[in-house]
């Protein structure tokens, strides 16, 4: 029993160290890619297209709907307590600081995280990775790094769009239900939006992007021989990415606001 526990712990520590080593290898390869990434540039473009551009309709719809719901609920309830202006800080807290980066991260995990793990897993099973190595292409530089940069950058950009649609787009939807003076709304939103909120939002999306991409790539490469390992690793990748994103969010909030 004690032996089993010990082995379990040792295996997990080994896996953690391996994961950290993998992360640093990616970071190292990223600098190489930035310096001389001519071959992988197309892969990066495609990754941003798949992760960023193609997720834009989902992200914008969710952002507009969420923003509109907050405004409609807030305008209905808050003035009853004489706190009508509280709607703006609430909107900013939810859209910019908290739920925006997290929702974008969840959508990217579901869309691109799974796709990356599945694709790399099937590359491994079909010996495509070995073919890259045999040709002289470093799989980390060519496969991992463009996905790492692509997902991280896409998440950051999607977060900008989420903020734009959530704070500005939602206003226009609200007009159909609760007309608010445009000048008043935008003045108060922009007055209540602080640089702190934006910086926190950017930090979160960058950290979530790094987590999602590294975890998805890592589990993709964990596939060894059989195609049946691919769905197993995809599930693990999704679970791990979710947990790590939530932990990172809590950690950032703790560091940032204490």
């Amino acid at each position: 029993m004690l032996g089993k526990l010990g082995r379990w712990l040792i295996n997990h520590i080994k896996a953690l160290l391996y994961g950290l080593g993998f992360f640093f290898q990616i970071i190292k390869a990223t600098f190489g890619f930035i310096k001389n990434g001519r071959v992988g540039r197309k892969v990066l473009t495609m990754q941003i297209l798949f992760t960023g551009v193609q997720a834009l309709n989902n992200i914008s719809l969710i952002a507009v709907a969420l923003g509109a719901v907050i405004i409609i609920q807030g305008v209905g309830i808050l003035p009853q307590f004489g706190q009508g202006d509280l709607i703006y800080p609430i909107l900013i807290t939810i859209i910019t600081r908290e739920l925006g980066p997290m929702l974008c991260a969840f959508i990217i995990i579901a869309r691109s995280g799974t796709a990356i793990t599945t694709e790399i897993g099937s590359n491994v099973v079909n010996h495509e990775i070995e073919a890259y190595i045999a040709t002289g292409v470093n799989p980390l530089s060519y496969i991992a790094v463009p996905r790492f940069i692509g997902v991280t950058l896409s998440l950051l950009l999607l977060n900008f769009y989420f903020n734009f649609f959530g704070l500005i787009g939602s206003y226009f939807i609200t007009q159909f239900i609760y007309p608010i003076q445009a000048a008043e709304y935008f003045h108060k939103i922009l007055y209540n939006l602080h640089l702190d909120d934006i910086v926190s939002s950017i930090i979160k999306s960058l950290v979530f992007g790094v987590i999602i991409s590294v975890v998805s790539i890592y589990y993709g490469f964990q596939v060894e021989q059989s195609s049946t390992e691919i769905p197993q690793m995809t599930i693990k990748a999704v679970g791990t990415a979710f947990v790590l994103c939530i932990l990172a969010d809590a950690l950032i909030v703790l560091i940032y606001y204490t």
């Binding site: 941003i48 297209l49 551009v53 950009l157 999607l158 903020n163």
Partner: peptide, 27 residues
């Protein structure tokens, strides 16, 4: 792909710059 991704990045940057400038003016 190149053009679409380029536009995607430029519009995102413009939206955040627009928000920052408006914030600056308002605040």
């Amino acid at each position: 792909a190149d053009q679409i991704v380029g536009l995607f990045i430029i519009l995102a940057m413009m939206s955040i710059v627009f928000i920052l400038v408006m914030m600056g003016i308002n605040q």
